[in-house]
Amino acid sequence: MLRFRYLLSAMAAAMLIATTGTVQAEWPEKPIKLIVPFKAGGSSDQMGRVVQAGIKESEALPHPVTIVNVGGHYSIGARRVMEAKPDGYNFLLIHLALMGGQGSGALDFGWKDFAPVASVGEFCLMPMVRKDSGIDSLEQLLDQAKDKPDSLIFGANLGAINHMGGLMLQETTPGAKFRFVQIGGGTANYTALTGAQTAVTVLSGAEVTKFTRLPDGSENPDSQIKPLAYTGSERFSGLPDVPTTQELGYDVNFCIKSWFFAPKDTPQEAIDGFAAAIEKATQTDTYQDYLVKNGFANGIVTGEEMLEELQATWDRIEPIARLAAQK
């Protein structure tokens, strides 16, 4: 009987703690949850963990950041943050997929339903073909897509970033048309292109370096594939010989950043506090090392500036995303 009474008092004590912990004092007064709506190990998860480590290393916050990987479809984790209590302890790390899903109609919410916190780590894409394809430039590729529409097999993850990247390229040349085929993410497309199952795909700058270069930066003779252009506004530091799409005369800019969001109505104090912590994290060696290794651009954008940047991205992406849903 004694034990049972102990159990009861333990339960009562726990309830007391659970109900009295909501008094607002100086932010933050407990660990901060960063929801990554993807499985552990992916590129968003890595970015989250590097920022987490950077915040710890720079002692930017008195409490740790815990990363919560919400698997399944990314909309589940994103919606969870959107509906979370705006108490300043719930944040979301996501990228362009959010706008893609909104534009294609796969999601019934979007970036405007969140409060922007910070955007970091930009990377852009490279259209890739096989070395034995006889295609040597972006112009030749698009011409072939125009002369023989719907015959060049483009490996993509339908509805996702690489699909939208391909559509954006195709839209520059009236009449050009790739045949989009469901293959998957970067690694799967590298495999399919190497195995000559597909003819074109887009990979990130870091993926291209990883798959086609030797450690000293020279070209790997065993590699079967080559990049044609870079969709950033400046040349990719890892592959300075590859021209940008704008240099080639195509008005294409297709870059992806990591976005930190908070639920709407989160106190400004928490938003600014977390943005400042992320900024400090980006100055650590851990983060800088990671950037260089993965070909991400440096820099952090917050506040009003981020809102403008998001709006500009949305204006570019929405028509493409709508196209991705149709075909």
């Binding site: 890595q46 450690p215 290794k293 993965n294």
Partner: peptide, 21 residues
């Protein structure tokens, strides 16, 4: 896939040249 994530976080790029690097 998780293992690849672990390597990447340690700044090791798994890829065709892993044996070289």
């Amino acid at each position: 896939a998780i293992l690849i994530g672990a390597l990447t976080i340690h700044s090791i790029q798994p890829g065709p040249t892993l044996f070289l690097t």
